[in-house]
Amino acid sequence: EEEEKKKEEIARLLGVSKEDVERILKKNNLDIEQLLRRVQREN
């Protein structure tokens, strides 16, 4: 699934687990696209 791939990509870029990414998304109330763009910009 596309969303899972995005979570895995974010996890890889941040050096965290996919579960961490899911927690970040919930905690910050971000959607996956916003987080992915933010992470890609910083790297």
Score class of each variant (00 low, 15 high):
27 K>Q: 13
14 L>F: 02
11 A>N: 00
41 R>N: 12
15 G>C: 08
25 L>G: 01
38 R>H: 15
23 R>F: 10
40 Q>R: 14
39 V>A: 14
35 L>I: 03
43 N>D: 09
24 I>F: 09
7 K>M: 11
26 K>I: 13
33 E>I: 04
35 L>M: 05
19 E>K: 11
36 L>N: 01
7 K>N: 01
24 I>S: 02
33 E>S: 06
2 E>I: 10
20 D>M: 15
29 N>S: 08
11 A>S: 06
35 L>A: 02
40 Q>N: 07
5 K>Q: 11
12 R>L: 07
27 K>R: 14
28 N>Q: 12
43 N>L: 15
1 E>A: 13
34 Q>P: 01
18 K>T: 09
42 E>W: 05
28 N>A: 13
37 R>D: 14
8 E>R: 11
3 E>D: 14
12 R>A: 07
27 K>I: 14
17 S>C: 06
30 L>N: 05
28 N>D: 13
30 L>S: 04
26 K>V: 12
13 L>A: 05
34 Q>G: 10
38 R>N: 10
34 Q>L: 06
13 L>M: 09
13 L>H: 05
2 E>M: 09
43 N>M: 15
23 R>W: 12
29 N>T: 04
26 K>D: 07
14 L>A: 01
13 L>N: 02
41 R>M: 14
29 N>K: 11
18 K>P: 07
34 Q>F: 06
33 E>T: 07
29 N>Y: 05
9 E>Q: 12
16 V>G: 02
23 R>S: 10
40 Q>K: 10
38 R>S: 10
31 D>M: 05
1 E>Q: 11
4 E>A: 09
6 K>I: 15
7 K>A: 04
13 L>V: 05
21 V>P: 00
27 K>D: 14
35 L>D: 00
11 A>T: 02
6 K>Q: 11
4 E>S: 07
9 E>R: 09
29 N>V: 04
4 E>W: 06
38 R>G: 05
40 Q>L: 12
15 G>D: 03
20 D>S: 08
3 E>S: 11
20 D>L: 10
13 L>W: 06
38 R>K: 13
18 K>W: 05
34 Q>A: 13
3 E>Y: 15
38 R>P: 01
14 L>P: 00
19 E>R: 11
29 N>M: 07
35 L>T: 02
40 Q>E: 09
39 V>Q: 02
17 S>K: 09
10 I>H: 00
7 K>Q: 03
28 N>I: 10
32 I>L: 14
6 K>A: 10
12 R>N: 06
39 V>N: 02
18 K>V: 13
12 R>F: 07
34 Q>H: 06
25 L>A: 07
37 R>V: 08
3 E>K: 10
8 E>A: 13
26 K>C: 14
20 D>A: 13
4 E>G: 06
34 Q>S: 13
33 E>H: 09
3 E>F: 14
37 R>C: 14
18 K>A: 06
26 K>S: 10
30 L>D: 04
1 E>L: 14
21 V>Q: 00
27 K>P: 01
26 K>T: 10
40 Q>H: 08
11 A>W: 01
22 E>G: 04
10 I>V: 14
39 V>H: 04
6 K>E: 03
5 K>D: 09
24 I>A: 03
22 E>H: 04
24 I>Y: 12
37 R>Y: 04
29 N>R: 12
8 E>L: 15
25 L>K: 01
19 E>N: 09
36 L>Y: 09
20 D>V: 15
12 R>Q: 06
24 I>C: 12
21 V>K: 00
25 L>D: 00
14 L>N: 00
35 L>K: 00
29 N>P: 03
42 E>A: 10
9 E>C: 12
24 I>E: 03
